[in-house]
């Protein structure tokens, strides 16, 4: 039901862009105003969300560890699983962000006849997630050929690598296939597994269908129903030059694509997609486990009034001297 609702929502958004541009002629609204609103919403929303997270106190180190902590020299210490300093924590974070290291340990519980509960390794989610995220990044960077003029050398190189196999014309990008394939798996995973379906919400399906819609319209424009690509570049250059232009007759699919992207980035700060920023701020990941090495003082503890022995001695020096008590300072 959640899945159907999200699918319908995405289809309605697509129809909205279609009728808005080629029915009502609101190309300027869908091509300029909405993208600008979306970009501002994304940037401001992202910063506010991160600042809100940053205001929560982290009084103590709470990293999740699954290796031996650094202690005595003859006990073998696992630097990555239980980082003892900032650099190790940085390495662990880098592996987490670039290669989803913790997801690699993903396991699956299955109830077999008997009844017997069986746990097993399950790498498919890790693989699907990794392929999806990396492909999306490459596809996004490739789009800089529309955003920039002249196009930087690195973008050309990436495109050439991505069209390495020279299949078809326009040459099929490897990442287009990987992206759509991985997305299909990620949607299918939620739909086909009854337990996953039970815990999946609109907030899970909607971004998936939205990105799937973006990917499909993008591929459709490149390989099948071509749009006026020079006009597309003019429009996007206009947006980034803060000098918006709306060339005529670009084609409806472009506006559908652009509107879905606008919705995606405007929705970003309010959704689970914020894991993009959140991964960096995870206290169970980004802290070194130095609880026993360093003293951590809770920052909101009330100030304790203390009276040191030096101060005590200063106060009662004369009396103590008379009574013949030993003094630190004469």
């Amino acid at each position: 039901m959640n899945a159907l609702f999200s699918l319908v929502a995405v289809v309605v958004l697509m129809l909205l862009a279609l009728f808005g541009t080629y029915g009502a002629g609101l190309q300027y609204l869908f091509g300029v105003i909405i993208p600008y609103i979306a970009i501002v919403t994304f940037l401001v929303g992202f910063v506010l969300r991160v600042v809100r997270w940053a205001r929560s106190p982290v009084p103590f180190r709470i990293p999740t560890t699954c290796g031996q902590q650094k202690s005595l020299p003859w006990i073998k210490h696992h630097e990555l699983e239980n980082p003892s300093n900032g650099f190790s924590a940085f390495l662990r974070m880098a592996l987490e962000i670039l290669f989803f290291r913790s997801l690699f340990r993903n396991t699956k519980a299955d109830l077999k006849s008997g009844p017997k509960l069986v746990y097993g390794s399950n790498k498919w989610l890790w693989l699907g997630g990794l392929v999806f995220h990396w492909s999306l990044l490459v596809v996004f960077i490739r789009h800089f050929r529309f955003f920039t003029e002249p196009v930087p050398f690195g973008i050309n190189l990436l495109e050439e690598l991505d069209s390495f196999f020279q299949v078809g014309l326009p040459i099929i990008y490897i990442t287009d296939i990987l992206l759509l394939g991985a997305l299909t798996y990620l949607v299918g995973r939620r739909l086909l597994d009854a337990r996953l379906r039970y815990i999946s919400l609109n907030a899970d399906y909607f971004p998936l269908f939205l990105i799937l819609g973006i990917g499909c319209t993008g591929a459709w424009m490149r390989y099948f129903a071509k749009v006026d690509i020079v006009g597309v570049k003019q429009l996007s250059l206009g947006l980034f030059n803060l000098h918006p232009v709306v060339p005529e007759g670009i084609g409806a699919f472009f506006y559908i694509h652009l509107f879905l992207v606008s919705v995606l980035i405007a929705y970003f700060p309010f959704s689970k997609l914020m894991h993009m920023g959140g991964i960096f701020l995870s206290p169970t990941r980004n802290l070194a486990n130095n609880n026993r090495v360093k003293r951590h003082v809770n920052p909101w503890n009330p100030v304790v009034k203390i009276h040191t022995y030096e101060e005590y001695e200063d106060e009662f020096r004369e009396v103590m001297k008379e009574a013949g008590m030993p003094l630190e300072k004469e």
């Binding site: 992202f46 800089f144 955003f147 002249p150 003019q234 250059l237 030059n241």
Partner: peptide
Amino acid sequence: FITLATVPFWYDAAAGKGT
């Protein structure tokens, strides 16, 4: 993050090729 997210804006401003 903000710098990376706004790369197209300042790249195009620096390149100055217009539209």
